[in-house]
Write a protein that binds this DNA or RNA. Structure first.
Lengths: 363, 363
DNA sequence: TTCTTACAATTGTCTGTACAATTAAACCCT
DNA sequence: AGGGTTTAATTGTACAGACAATTGTAAGAA
């Protein structure tokens, strides 16, 4: 029976809850006619006014539509209730390829009449949490989230908070271990491997690296670099592998860059963790009177639009990453279920002129 | 009397309408207690259920709040109804200083729990109109709008569309003639004047320029450049003043840049309309074997973060422009009236090393 | 066939009554 | 004063019944 007459819960509320359940479970589908007030009266034994009260509430909540003479009908939630806002939580819109990513998301969102709410986290948990709370209060249907530099646990907390509020989450660029969730990233391992192999084939065997290990994207690049060296039976002096678990910042990494350049007799090429680190090398090299690529070769990663520097690097398709994240989000919004998807986009190598072939002149 | 018993209009509806009128006319003010159901019964002669129906509707419409035992109260529309979304319509988040601007708006918005909806117009009227329609349908309280490259009329149309829907508009960066509206921009005329004067004081008299005239920001820079030359009684060969009413695009302006460099014996310094044009000069100069600043001096405008090029330029405070636009918006949201404000932010000159003093060696 | 009319199903409006639940404020007791 | 208890005002829930308005459909008329 629908109504428990002994329950302290108001009867109109019981009926109302039951109706919502039926609708959400799909027993009453979109555009279905629900029982008439008279039928409900027979079904439940309640007075018509009580039934009306329950139905009226669902009408103002947007679940039902009354049509005189015809009856009361279920409104197509997807079409009518549309929340058309999507959150995008990224470290900083001013940083690196963030604008590309944002634009990819925006263009794909606009095609389906969705709007993009921009939130910069500065890679901090507190800011991410602040924005998460705000986004939850405004009505959004999903969030595309680039995990912050905080611990994995903190990032899980953010994600779970969204999920508790029925907000869809898609991770972009950086993924997190031990959580099964939709994400879109690029093939950092393969990209780094390809790039290192390129250096090796150009005759370089002593290849330094400066890279952060705070994100799994970077850790994968480091792995790719190491794997390529191992596959070619090249062992590397540990002193020219500089890693730091602290995320990139100009000042700190400038020290590493300078340190590495001071040891330049130990190597002929350098793998910079990303293009901004590569730029630090250009800057430091200039000061130290070292010429790139004549004295030392360098590769970056990201393919930032640098205009004047011809840096050999790997292009990451950030615009496409934004698009794919949004497409994945849209599929979930449309109700597509199924296992979490991991989309790994292909990066491609961009050969410019920051690498020269190495010929050992000592013979 | 409140209720007309002969009217065909439902009595609950009459009461409901009367109540809304009283609230909107300020007879019942925010947090005022309205009559109890019993009082309404005496006042109108209606049954309590009918009165309840009217009141209930206003509750779900957000006008009233019922408190058991205390009565029913008017909700403060301004505080409760707050729309916390703001639109930001810019040409392209990937372009130039757009990320700075966006971040400035975002940070200022976040302080007051407002969210930023990002819309890229690509400087096209159709896209701006498309986004405008979307923004109007979602519920936003205002738009920060960077006018598109379309005609002034088209831009007015967009602005008026927003205004018809009671959406506040603040223009950023580019202003429009003959429309009295809040806007925030920078002192393009003064900045260009200052920069040209700098070149003159360094001994340059033959100063070329490549600049678009599609936006008033750029037209003002051109005026500043001309005024400085006039003030120092320098007349310039028209062939080294290259202007185009078509907005910047790389290919088209590369032609102008190359053309100007071909006439380089006619000048000793160049004013690039903005930093991206300056970069074209670096690129073209390299191909043509011309050295900057040894063979020719150059100044830009914008202070893009270029890292490796030491371009003398003028810094435009885009982050602050975003902040100020949002602050102005917030004042309007809070109901501050008064004449439209024009905020002109100060840019500052950044001396780097793309300019050398000119000494005439022919004596 | 096409137009008009009548019918009936359903929601819409309205009245009247009764008791329950909540809770600020008054009251009372230490 | 302070803390607990009662009271009463008000909204909340629920019932029963009546007639109005709307409108798709069917029956009837042209």
């Amino acid at each position: 029976m629908i109504i428990d007459r002994n329950s302290p819960i108001p009867k109109y509320f019981q009926l109302q809850t039951w109706l919502i359940e039926q609708i959400e479970m799909g027993v009453f589908k979109a555009n279905d006619k629900i029982p008439t007030e008279q039928e409900f009266k027979n079904l439940t034994g309640l007075a018509r006014a009580t039934i009306r009260q329950a139905v009226q509430n669902l009408v103002s909540m947007g679940y039902l539509l009354r049509k005189r003479r015809l009856g009361t009908f279920v409104i197509d939630q997807r079409r009518e209730k549309l929340q058309t806002n999507i959150g995008l939580m990224i470290p900083d819109i001013r940083m690196g390829n963030a604008p590309e990513l944002a634009r990819g998301v925006e263009d794909e969102a606009a095609r389906t009449q969705h709007s993009l709410i921009l939130c910069s986290t500065d890679d901090l948990y507190v800011k991410a949490d602040f924005h998460a709370n705000r986004l939850i209060n405004s009505s959004i249907s999903g969030v595309i989230f680039v995990p912050t530099a905080a611990s994995d646990d903190k990032n899980y907390q953010i994600i779970e908070k969204f999920m508790r509020h029925n907000i869809l989450v898609v991770l972009a660029d950086r993924s997190l271990p031990q959580i099964d969730i939709d994400y879109v990233t690029t093939d950092n391992f393969e990209g780094a491997y390809r790039q290192t192999e390129y250096l090796i084939k150009k005759g370089h065997t002593r290849i330094g690296i400066v890279i952060s290990t705070s994100f799994n994207t970077e850790r994968l690049r480091l792995e790719g670099y190491k794997k390529a060296l191992a596959d070619y039976n090249i062992s590397v002096n540990g002193s020219i592998i500089i890693t730091d678990s602290v995320p990139y910042n100009e000042e700190r990494y400038m020290h590493y860059v300078t340190d590495l350049l001071k040891q330049r007799d130990k190597m002929t090429a350098i793998f910079a963790g990303h293009d901004r680190i590569a730029l630090l090398f250009y800057s430091a090299a200039k000061k130290m009177g070292i010429s790139i690529p004549d004295d030392i070769s360098i590769v970056g990663y990201d393919d930032l639009p640098l205009m004047t520097i011809k840096l050999t690097t790997t292009h990451q398709p950030f615009y496409e990453m934004g698009q794919e994240s949004m497409r994945l989000m849209l599929r979930r919004i449309r109700g597509e279920s199924g296992n979490p998807q991991q989309i790994v986009l292909k990066s491609y190598f961009v050969e410019r002129s920051s690498v020269l072939p190495y010929r050992n002149n000592s013979y």
